[in-house]
């Protein structure tokens, strides 16, 4: 009985490790498919997204630092900046995800679309969304469906994180002593993580577009439908 359990555990561990190895190898293969012009587009968007998320993260991180140092006025000043940064950053990321969805329709085949990982996020709300997404991810079959599910999860996560950030900030402005500074910092870190996950989705779609062009005999892009 013990031997059977050991064999079962070993087989399960082997399958998990082999799956992870194959996933990494496939991801590397798709990485090589990214063309120079796609890299340029990706880098441009990456810098823009990082600038937006950096402003949000720095606002809340610095606010928590000032609060810990007893500088309540500075902390509230930074909270106001944080709310403004969230309000301007959210539409940008939602728009990017819509753009990725539209862009993916031009790809003949999609590369590996990974599920969101629970460990990437710090807030409990985002961890729950990532867990549900990971479950649904394995129930859908095609990469296109997985991409759609991922984009839906990213947008849901962005809306949830931003809504919580804004409501927590407003509550903190009314009563700084009762504010959850650590929670707000975690939510702002999740905002940054969601930005990185959106960029990862864009990278997969851009690599897929390039691979589709290379796969055609003439090497020419297809005509627009």
């Amino acid at each position: 009985m013990l031997l059977l359990a050991l064999c079962g555990s070993a087989a399960l561990a082997f399958l998990v490790l082999a799956g992870r190895y194959n996933e990494n190898a496939a991801a590397r293969a798709w990485e090589g498919a990214l063309a120079p012009e796609s890299t340029e587009v990706y880098e441009r968007i990456r810098e823009s997204v990082e600038a937006q998320t950096l402003m949000v993260q720095m606002s809340y991180r610095t606010a928590a630092r000032h609060e810990a140092a007893g500088a309540e006025g500075e902390a509230l000043h930074l909270l106001r900046l944080g709310v403004h940064s969230v309000e301007t950053g959210l539409p940008t990321l939602l728009h990017l995800n819509r753009g990725i969805g539209a862009l993916s329709r031009h790809a003949g085949a999609l590369g590996l679309v990974p599920p969101l990982r629970r460990a990437t996020f710090l807030s409990s709300r985002m961890r729950r969304i990532a867990s549900v997404h990971a479950l649904v991810h394995h129930f859908v079959v095609t990469m296109r469906e997985r991409l759609v599910v991922r984009l839906v999860a990213l947008n849901l996560g962005l809306r949830a994180v931003c809504s919580l950030l804004i409501s927590s900030s407003e509550a903190a402005m009314e009563d700084p002593d009762a504010a959850g500074w650590g929670r707000m910092e975690a939510l702002s870190a999740d905002f940054g993580a969601l930005g990185r996950e959106s960029l990862e989705t864009l990278r997969v779609v851009l690599a897929s577009l390039r691979a589709g062009v290379l796969a055609r005999p003439s090497g020419q892009p297809s005509r627009a439908r």
Partner: peptide, 27 residues
């Protein structure tokens, strides 16, 4: 990548000047 597709993705983030302006405003 087709230029119109590329432009679509770039437009999804607004223009670079606006992002630069937001950064300096924040600062």
């Amino acid at each position: 990548m087709r230029p119109d597709v590329q432009a679509h993705v770039l437009d999804s983030l607004g223009d670079a000047r606006e992002v630069a302006r937001r950064s300096l405003t924040w600062l």
